[in-house]
Every structure is written in C-alpha cells, then in structure tokens.
C-alpha cells in the first residue's frame, strides 16, 4: 500500500518535472526578439516541411469525411423528411468538431512524428551539440522555427479541411442523392454562425497546433539519443498529442458551447 502511494507520488513528481522542463525549454526557445533576417527563411522552410507536405493527407481525409457525413446525414434525415438539413449538419459537425480534431490527429501523425524524429536524429548525430559549440543556440535555430511553423500550419490546414469536407458533403448529398442545392446551402447559412462556429473551431485549431508541435519538438529535443530512444519518442509524440488533442477538445467544447 505504502509502495503504491510512493509510486503515485513519484510519477506525479515526474510529470511535473517533465512539464516544467518542457515549459522552460519552450520559454528559452520562444521568448526572444526574433532576428527576422535569420528566422524568416528558416520559418518558411519549416512551413514547407510541416504545412505543405501535410496538405495531401488533409485534403484526402477531409474529402472522405465530408462524403461520409453527407451520406450518413442523408440516410438519417430522410426518414424525417428533412434531408435538406444535411448541409447544416455537415457544416456544423465539421467546423465545430471534426475538422480541428481530425486535422490535429493527422497532423500529429504526419508532421509531429517527423519533427520528433528529425530533431532526435540531429541530437543523436551531435548536430545540436556542435551547433552549440559553434555558438548558436539550437533552441532558437532549430526548435523555434519548427514550433512556429506548426503553430501557423494547423489553423491553415483546418480551414482547408473545413472547405474540402463541406464540398465533399455537398457532392454526395446534392449531386448524387438529389438534395435541393438551394435549401442545402440556405439551411447551412442560416444555422452556421461565423463567430460561434467557424472562429471557435479555428481557436481550437490554434490551441491544438501549439500543443501538438510543443509535444513533438520537446520529445525530439529531450529524447535519449539512440535509435531506440528516437523510435520511442516518436511513438510518444503521437500518443501524447492524440490524447492531449482529444482531452483539450472536450475542455474547449465545454467552454465554448456549454451553458455555464
């Protein structure tokens, strides 16, 4: 019993230590006046690796998810004779929940794991140490641009996810199942509010982008520099960021749409 208590205490302490260390790392990396002449090209480069290379998986997933929503929504709503509400259903589900959450999960798998592995490999091959010896802080040079790139990319990807998903929904319900196009869009426009639904969804995207890239770069920076360490840290990035996204999604949803 005492062992159990001690174990819980120890792991709680461990969690706080890791949180503190990661917070401190991010503080050192991000809180500084950026030298834009150096930082901007690095940021653009990382936006390519983190953002542009994730576009394909985001677009394809969004299309299929939108189409499934259209199909499922139609088969349920047609029983009540209100199949024109399918536009409203697809748009609300996507903007409020599915686009930020699914995009963040895909992003964690595609970009987050790649970031962890890349930084981990740099650590294992002593690139970070040698950069430090040359007199350049790897936190500023390696970590900061990658973090900002993730932070900027995810909201952009979520906006694209929304549009492609809604288009996929209209493709199935309007073009294939014959829902009236006018009432599909009118219904959607009546019920979707830009500030309440779209912007709140984008706020979620910003939070998820920050959390996922934070986890990814810290796991890469903090890992044990061996091949086993890298593979473990990559797995941890995907697991932790998925859990963080789902947990935070509940909290944010409760704050935004709950009636407290």
């Amino acid at each position: 019993m005492l062992d159990w208590v001690a174990g819980v205490g120890r792991s709680t302490l461990n969690i706080f230590t890791v949180l503190g260390r990661s917070g401190l790392t991010m503080y050192q990396a991000l809180v500084a006046v950026p030298d834009w002449r150096v930082q901007f090209p690095l940021l653009v480069r990382q936006l390519y690796f983190v953002g542009v290379l994730s576009v394909i998986i985001i677009v394809v997933s969004a299309l299929f998810i939108g189409m499934v929503l259209g199909l499922q929504g139609y088969t349920i709503l047609v029983d009540y004779g209100s199949e024109q509400a399918v536009g409203q259903m697809v748009a609300l589900t996507l903007t409020r929940e599915l686009a930020p959450v699914v995009a963040a999960l895909l992003f964690a798998g595609r970009a987050g794991s790649a970031l962890t592995a890349e930084i981990g490999l740099m650590k294992a091959t002593e690139q970070l140490a040698s950069m430090e010896m040359i007199g350049v802080d790897p936190l500023r040079r390696i970590i900061a641009p990658r973090f900002w790139a993730g932070f900027i990319s995810l909201p952009v990807l979520v906006a694209i996810f929304n549009v492609v998903g809604i288009w996929g929904g209209s493709l199935v319900s309007v073009d294939w199942l014959g829902v009236d196009s006018g009432s599909f869009w009118a219904n959607m426009q009546n019920s979707v509010d830009f500030a309440d639904d779209v912007i709140n969804g984008m706020i979620k995207a910003v939070v998820f982008g920050a959390v996922v890239t934070w986890i990814a770069v810290f796991q890469g920076y903090d890992l044990v520099p061996t091949s086993e360490g890298i593979s473990k840290a990559t797995t941890r990035t995907v697991v932790y960021s998925s859990l963080a996204v789902l947990g935070l999604d509940f909290v944010l949803t409760a704050l935004m749409f709950g009636d407290f």
Partner: peptide, 20 residues
Amino acid sequence: VGVLMLAGIAALLVLAVKVS
C-alpha cells in the same frame, strides 16, 4: 508555402461567405 497561406485565407473567406 505562399500558395498554402493563400489557400488558408481563401478557405476562411469561403467559410465566411458561403458557409456561414
């Protein structure tokens, strides 16, 4: 990267005008 950023802004515009 430029195209991606523009696509993001365009997507937001579509969400504002066409969806909401």
